[in-house]
Design a protein around this nucleic acid. Structure first.
Lengths: 143, 143
DNA sequence: GTTACATGTAACAAAACAAATTACAGGTCG
DNA sequence: CGACCTGTAATTTGTTTTGTTACATGTAAC
């Protein structure tokens, strides 16, 4: 299956916070309107972004704002903030292979090694892109 | 969520076919015993591996064998054979963002670009490892 | 302080999916 | 023919994602 859209929703929100400068209008309801989802979904994602120190939100007060500049936030930061893939868990392995078979006994360690490397390669690709890059694409508005 | 364990099952099977030289004993039931799953799961995976030209299996006749050497089969070949992640579909995007918002209107194209790059990085990591590498780890049998 | 309106979260429902399993059709070969 | 295998459709079970309802709590204007 695919990695949760919570990641793309989070990126969407953060870009919107950067572009829409009137802080007070960035309510969960307003953001939900742009993302096209439920305000509760937004608040859940926002809660995770807050926990990671990427945004400032206060209970009871309308609007959120970025806690860092766009160039300081990589896609990997967002990815980790919303916890869409646990460490060494991009690939799932079949459980309890037969320990009496040499393959069953040893394959897990080899798979873990290779799968971990592949996951890290993907994550590194996210690390070299910042939200500033994404916002630049958005502002080009080539539609 | 994680990528289907069908991938790890496929790798397991292929390694076993290479190590267990007595072709006729490699029935779906025997393989299921090492992987610890149902024989039908094995046959389904085997069917996909056959479609990709990685194994030789014949209906009605016991046993399967590799169609190539271990060094000729990369993990990417296996990954593609069992179809665990569709092209540009490792990450899912939220659907139908609001086209009246500049972010909603443009974010998909930017996300597609970045997500595609990350997926390709992961896949390239799988491409540089062959089953020969995995079997080497298994035969070390360091338990 | 109370009112209006926001966020924070728990709890639940619906839809989508993976994996195991059952059942059976069809192939191969002694 | 009969034993045994592969091929595959259909079903079930368990899990996960996403959306939704409901309500507690926080804030600030008045």
């Amino acid at each position: 299956m695919s990695i949760s859209s919570r990641f793309s929703v989070a990126i969407h929100i953060l870009c919107l916070l950067a572009i829409n400068e009137e802080k007070a209008t960035n309510t969960s309801e307003y953001l939900a309107g742009s993302v096209n989802t439920n305000p509760v979904v937004i608040r859940k994602v926002m809660s995770m972004l807050k926990g990671a120190g990427l945004v400032h939100v206060r209970a009871g007060v309308a609007g959120a704002e970025l806690a860092k500049t766009l160039a300081e936030i990589t896609l990997l930061d967002v990815y980790k903030a919303v916890n869409v893939v646990a460490e060494n868990d991009l690939f799932s392995s079949h459980e309890h292979p037969n320990p009496e078979c040499i393959v069953g006994r040893n394959i897990q360690q080899s798979l873990t090694k290779q799968f971990s490397a592949a996951q890290k390669a993907m994550e590194h690709s996210l690390e070299i892109v910042t939200l500033a890059d994404v916002v630049q694409d958005i502002l080009a508005d080539n539609v």
